[in-house]
C-alpha cells in the first residue's frame, strides 16, 4: 500500500511537470480586453439612458444597464456566439453579469429536451445554483456582522 502511495506521488509530480501551462499573460490580457469592453458597453448604455432621462436616479440607471447586458448575453447565447467570445475572454466574460446570464440561459437551452419541469425547471440553475447559494450565504454573514456592529 505504501508503495502505491509513493508511486502515485511521484507520478503526479511528474504529470504536473509535463502538463502544459496556460500562459497567464495572455489570459490576463484577453480577460482585461473583453471584460473591459463589456464594462465600457455598460457605461455607454448608462450614458445614453442618462442623456434621455436626466431625472432618473443612478440606481435605476444601473438596473437598466444590467437588464440590457443580460438580454444581449442571452440572445448571443441562443445564437451560439457567446461561448466563442467566452473562450477568448475567459474571466472577462464570466465576472460581469454576462457570465451569470449565460450560465442560466445555456442550461435552459441544453436541458429543454428533458421537459419543462425536470429539464428546464430543475436543471436551469445547474451551473448558476452554487453561485446563488454562495451569494445568499455570504449576505447572511455580512448581515449578521453588520447588525452586530450597529448594536454597539
Amino acid at each position: 500500500m505504501e508503495n502505491t502511495e509513493k508511486r502515485n506521488e511521484e507520478y503526479l509530480l511528474y504529470v504536473e511537470r509535463e502538463t502544459p501551462k496556460t500562459g497567464w499573460f495572455n489570459s490576463l490580457l484577453h480577460a482585461f480586453l473583453v471584460g473591459g469592453m463589456i464594462c465600457c458597453l455598460g457605461q455607454m448604455f448608462g450614458d445614453i439612458i442618462k442623456a434621455y432621462n436626466p431625472t432618473m436616479d443612478m440606481l435605476r440607471v444601473s438596473a437598466w444597464i444590467s437588464i440590457i447586458i443580460i438580454t444581449i448575453t442571452i440572445l448571443l447565447t441562443a445564437f451560439g456566439v457567446f461561448d466563442r467570445i467566452a473562450k477568448f475572454g475567459g474571466a472577462g466574460t464570466f465576472i460581469p453579469i454576462s457570465g451569470f446570464a449565460n450560465s442560466i440561459a445555456s442550461c435552459a437551452i441544453e436541458f429543454k429536451n428533458e421537459g419543462l419541469v425536470f429539464g428546464i425547471g430543475s436543471k436551469m440553475f445547474f451551473v448558476a445554483g452554487p453561485v446563488i447559494v454562495n451569494g445568499v450565504a455570504y449576505s447572511i454573514i455580512v448581515g449578521l456582522v453588520y447588525s452586530l456592529i450597529l448594536l454597539f
Binding site: T19, P20, K21, T22, T77, A78, G80, F82, D83, I85, A86, K87, G90, T93, F94, G99, N102, S103, A105, S106, C107, I109, E110, F111, F126, V127
Partner: peptide, 17 residues
Amino acid sequence: ERQYRYPLEFGNQRQSY
C-alpha cells in the same frame, strides 16, 4: 459533453490539457 461536463453553449475556457 452534457453528461460529463457543461452545457454546450456555456461560455467557459477548457484547460489546455
